[in-house]
Simulated scan of single mutants.
Amino acid sequence: MRKRLLITLTTARGSRQLSLNLIARCLLLLFVLMLLASFFISNALLVKTSDELHSLTADYQKLGSLYSGVLGSHETVRTELDKLSLNLASLEQERNSLEQVNQAWSQPLRQLELAMGLEPAEKMTIERSQLLQQMANERLFMLHGIPNGYPVKMKRLSDGFGMRNHPLTGQRKHHNGVDFPVDTGTPIYATADGAVEYAGYHKKSGFGYLVIINHNFGFKSYYAHMKKRPKVRSGQLVRKGEQIGQSGNSGKSTGPHLHYEVRYLFKPLNPVPFLNWSLHNYDQIMTQEKAVAWDGLKEMQPLNQLALPLLSSPEGKSSAAK
């Protein structure tokens, strides 16, 4: 008897039995096996997919953390950039301010270069400014202590230094100074700082009312034929540009004028180079007047030159005495 596979189906109407032959049974078995294989494969794929999902989730969380970190770093960098931008703007403003200060600071130094007849430097540095100040103080010290400039406002001379025929005696005689043909009462100014050695009427020399001023380094200046008793007295200290009297016609004179002399160690010197001596042509006189030991005089200047006031001048100084 053949083996048959009976399948009983129970419904509401009753039970029915179905009989399957061998082929059907093989097909059924194959179907069951496929179902089982599909079940196991699905479970395996589900497990693998679940693992991959967990891995993706972990990677996503890592990426989220990295993004948060990058975002935080970006904000930090942005904050630092904002700070740097503010600092740069502040530094730019400070640089502009310093340039304005430097320009304002260097402008008078440029004028000082021109006043001293120097070639302008390409760039005004601290070292250059200190050198200019030292040179200016050195020159001003000498110009305040040694006769220079004009004793009256007039710059025309009626008689020069050297041999001439004396206007009164007609004798050939050396003229130790220069004469300015100024009117009576013209103000006379000291040509350098010093102490008044003599102030009064000097009959023996024929100079009439005379002022002699002792200056630095053995220099003296003479102012003769004044109108009346001078405004200064013997022993008085005077400043360059200070009025010491008025021109006149006293003593042996043919008319109103000022006789002016410059002497060094009692020796009369030609006053003309000293009349034209100034801050601008400071070195020129040192080649014109060989009788003065200029190198030795420079060594006698104060050591603290930078402590001296720069471009100071006495109050009431006349331009005629510059």
Score class of each variant (00 low, 15 high):
residue 286 M to G: 02
residue 310 L to I: 14
residue 138 E to N: 00
residue 143 L to F: 10
residue 313 S to W: 01
residue 97 S to A: 12
residue 289 E to N: 01
residue 312 S to R: 02
residue 129 S to Y: 05
residue 279 L to G: 10
residue 59 D to A: 14
residue 279 L to H: 13
residue 192 A to E: 06
residue 215 H to W: 04
residue 218 G to T: 01
residue 305 Q to Y: 02
residue 63 L to P: 00
residue 55 S to K: 12
residue 95 R to N: 11
residue 66 L to F: 08
residue 149 G to L: 03
residue 112 L to S: 09
residue 314 P to K: 01
residue 259 H to L: 03
residue 114 L to D: 15
residue 321 A to E: 08
residue 266 F to K: 13
residue 135 M to T: 14
residue 130 Q to C: 10
residue 191 T to N: 11
residue 223 Y to G: 03
residue 56 L to W: 12
residue 113 E to G: 02
residue 37 A to W: 05
residue 167 P to W: 10
residue 218 G to L: 04
residue 124 M to S: 15
residue 41 I to P: 00
residue 10 T to Q: 14
residue 14 G to A: 10
residue 251 G to Y: 12
residue 65 S to L: 07
residue 189 Y to M: 03
residue 116 M to L: 14
residue 207 F to R: 03
residue 259 H to M: 02
residue 23 I to D: 14
residue 152 V to H: 01
residue 218 G to H: 01
residue 255 G to L: 08
residue 176 N to Y: 11
residue 188 I to L: 05
residue 150 Y to K: 03
residue 194 G to C: 06
residue 245 G to E: 01
residue 113 E to Y: 07
residue 63 L to M: 13
residue 134 Q to M: 15
residue 64 G to T: 08
residue 191 T to K: 01
residue 240 K to G: 11
residue 305 Q to L: 15
residue 26 C to D: 10
residue 179 D to Y: 06
residue 129 S to G: 14
residue 91 L to I: 09
residue 20 L to T: 06
residue 60 Y to L: 14
residue 100 Q to F: 00
residue 296 G to Q: 14
residue 69 G to T: 09
residue 165 N to Y: 14
residue 70 V to R: 11
residue 137 N to W: 03
residue 309 P to D: 04
residue 135 M to W: 09
residue 221 S to Q: 02
residue 266 F to H: 08
residue 37 A to C: 10
residue 190 A to C: 03
residue 315 E to K: 12
residue 173 K to T: 15
residue 154 M to N: 13
residue 227 K to S: 13
residue 113 E to A: 04
residue 44 A to S: 10
residue 204 K to I: 07
residue 261 E to W: 01
residue 44 A to I: 07
residue 250 S to T: 15
residue 310 L to P: 05
residue 36 L to I: 13
residue 224 A to P: 06
residue 320 A to K: 05
residue 165 N to P: 00
residue 172 R to V: 08
residue 27 L to C: 09
residue 318 S to Y: 00
residue 321 A to I: 07
residue 38 S to Y: 04
residue 320 A to I: 00
residue 316 G to K: 09
residue 154 M to K: 05
residue 258 L to P: 04
residue 46 L to D: 08
residue 98 L to W: 13
residue 13 R to E: 13
residue 316 G to F: 05
residue 293 A to E: 15
residue 149 G to P: 02
